[in-house]
Every structure is written in structure tokens, then in C-alpha cells.
């Protein structure tokens, strides 16, 4: 296996990781600030992708599509927060699980009701299509490179938002002591709506960006949701830094595991058995990683110890 191939696979793992980060960042923020387990986060990913596909079909502009994805997901998030989620903060995790599970059903079938059962079309914009050649002669799709850059920019933006702005101070205060910030006169319900909408918008952005190279269809958010949960648990719930590291770890493990595990097994096994066992193990790899992390560090890599 050549170095070029290994580097290309690492890039792929990174790209997958930063997209997971967009999902996981919102999830971990919402959990950190409001203490809410949101199973419906995958629905915002789907809403983003559908909104982008619809607007791209109307206008032909990818940039407008992305804007639409952000707005649609943020609006859906704010709406859900104000009508349903707001009543759940005081309840235990179980009611949250049930209510957000119910939201998945409503969003998924509602989307199918509006857009029909057939997958939608969303394509990479012309100016980002095709491969470019990186130093070392690696041909790599430009769009995926753009995804990595967007993901990293969002990470920097979130870091700046939380460390440098007034909203960030309120968010950090909210994570530590909810009564305190209410006492300081912060409009806490507005803060919660904003955080929730921000998380939803990030998920919607991820859905639209990834939708251009995947299939825009009902139910697309659920597999990603599970992965995003894995990410935030590995990183430590509530920690943006943890979500970032966790996302990269999961992205790299999943991508590299699928490629290298069958090869590793081929070293000491018969060819087709090695392919089968290696592939099976690869599909379990991130869950094994997650259990290993939790067994060694029960609150994740960057979680506050309990």
C-alpha cells in the first residue's frame, strides 16, 4: 500500500470527521447548556439537506442553497424549541428521549409527505467539482477539501463565539450554573432558543454540504445521529474541544478501519475469510473505540469528572 494512498485515506477520514463535528458540536452544546438529550438532532441534518436541494433546484445556486439550509434548520430548531423542547428541560432524560423520538417520527414522515418518497437531487457546484492534484501527486476531490476547510472554519468560529463573545460567556455560565445566569438578568429562555437554533443550523449546514455528495432522502439523519452521539460521548459531553477531537477520532477510525482491517487479517488468514472478518470488525470499530474510551475514562476524554 503506497504512501499516497495512505495520505489520501487520512484526508478522507479527516473530511468525515469534520462533518461529524458539525453535527456533534450542536448536540454537545445543547446538552451542555440545557442538559437535553436530543434524538431529533438528525432531523435538522435532513431538513438542511432537503431545503438545500429544493432551493438549488429552484435557483441553481449552491450558495443560496446553503443559506437556505442554515435558515430552514435554524427556524425548525427555534420552532421546536419554543413549542416542545422548552417543556422538557425540567424533566428527566427519559421524557426527553421519548419526546425527541416522537419528533423524529413527525419530521421524517412530514418530510416525506411534503417532498415525496423519492430521493432528491443536490449536486456539487461547478466551481468545486472534480479533483485537484495535491503536492506529492495525490489527486483529491476539490469539494472534499472544501468540506475540510469549512469544517475547520466552523470549529474556529465556535471557539471564538464561546471564548470571546458575550453570548459565549452566557453559554459557559449556563453550563456551570443555571440559576446564576438567570439571577444575573440574562433572558434565559431566549438564550436557550438561540443555542438550540445554532445547534440545529450547524446540523442543517452539515446535511446540505454532505447531501451534495450523498443521497438526499428521508431517514438520512439517523445513522449520522448515532455517530454524532458516539463522538460527543468519546469527547466528553458538553465539551466543544472534546467533540472536535472525538469527531476526528471517529472519522479516522471508521475510514481507516474499513480499509486496513481486511488487509491486516490477510497477513495471516485466507483471502476471502479475511475480507469478511475484517469488514465485520471494521463496521464495529468505532463502537469498540467508544467502549474502550469509556471503560478507561468513564466521562469521555474531556468531560468533567463526576
Amino acid at each position: 500500500m503506497s504512501t499516497v494512498l495512505i495520505i489520501e485515506q487520512i484526508l478522507n477520514g479527516l473530511q468525515f470527521g469534520v462533518m461529524l463535528f458539525l453535527m456533534a458540536a450542536g448536540l454537545t452544546l445543547i446538552f451542555g447548556v440545557m442538559g437535553l438529550i436530543n434524538l431529533a438532532h438528525g432531523s435538522f441534518y435532513m431538513i438542511g439537506a432537503f431545503a438545500a436541494a429544493a432551493v438549488a433546484a429552484l435557483t441553481g445556486s449552491f450558495v443560496l442553497a446553503l443559506v437556505a439550509a442554515l435558515i430552514a434548520a435554524a427556524l425548525a430548531g427555534a420552532l421546536v424549541e419554543m413549542t416542545v423542547i422548552r417543556r422538557l428541560y425540567a424533566t428527566d432524560h427519559l421524557d426527553q428521549v421519548l419526546a425527541t423520538f416522537a419528533l423524529i417520527l413527525v419530521f421524517s414522515e412530514g418530510t416525506r409527505w411534503i417532498f415525496g418518497s423519492f430521493p432528491l437531487f443536490l449536486d456539487i457546484p461547478e466551481f468545486l467539482s472534480g479533483p485537484i492534484t495535491l503536492p506529492g501527486g495525490i489527486a483529491y476531490p476539490l469539494y472534499r477539501l472544501a468540506l475540510i476547510i469549512v469544517g475547520l472554519l466552523v470549529a474556529v468560529f465556535l471557539w471564538a463565539l464561546i471564548e470571546k463573545t458575550r453570548l459565549g460567556i452566557q453559554i459557559r455560565a449556563g453550563e456551570n450554573d443555571r440559576e446564576m445566569i438567570a439571577a444575573l438578568g440574562v433572558d434565559i429562555s431566549r438564550l436557550y432558543t438561540m443555542v438550540f437554533a445554532l445547534g440545529a443550523a450547524l446540523a442543517g449546514l452539515a446535511g446540505a454540504l454532505v447531501g451534495a455528495i450523498q443521497s438526499v432522502q428521508v431517514g438520512m439523519g439517523e445513522p449520522v445521529l448515532i455517530l454524532a452521539f458516539v463522538v460527543i460521548v468519546i469527547g466528553g459531553i458538553g465539551s466543544i474541544k472534546g467533540a472536535f477531537i472525538g469527531a476526528l477520532l471517529v472519522g479516522l477510525t471508521d475510514t481507516l478501519g474499513g480499509i486496513f482491517l481486511p488487509e491486516v487479517f490477510k497477513l495471516f488468514m485466507e483471502h476471502s475469510a479475511a475480507t469478511t472478518i475484517g469488514s465485520s470488525l471494521a463496521s464495529m470499530a468505532i463502537y469498540i473505540l467508544m467502549s474502550a474510551v469509556l471503560i478507561l475514562r468513564p466521562t469521555g476524554l474531556f468531560g468533567a469528572s463526576q
Binding site: 494512498l5 489520501e8 485515506q9 478522507n12 477520514g13 473530511q15 468525515f16 476531490p141 472534499r144 454532505v210 455528495i213 450523498q214 443521497s215 438520512m220 445513522p223 475510514t255 481507516l256 474499513g258 480499509i259 481486511p262 476471502s272 475480507t275 469478511t276 469488514s279 471494521a282 463496521s283
Partner: peptide
Amino acid sequence: EIYTKLGQTDYAAEIAQ
């Protein structure tokens, strides 16, 4: 010969192979 995960949506790694 590659067997991918059922329901997988990203094939960058396989395409590189």
C-alpha cells in the same frame, strides 16, 4: 474486492482504493 458497511453513504475510502 470490498465489502462495505450496510447503509454506508461515504465511499471516499473505497474510491481511493
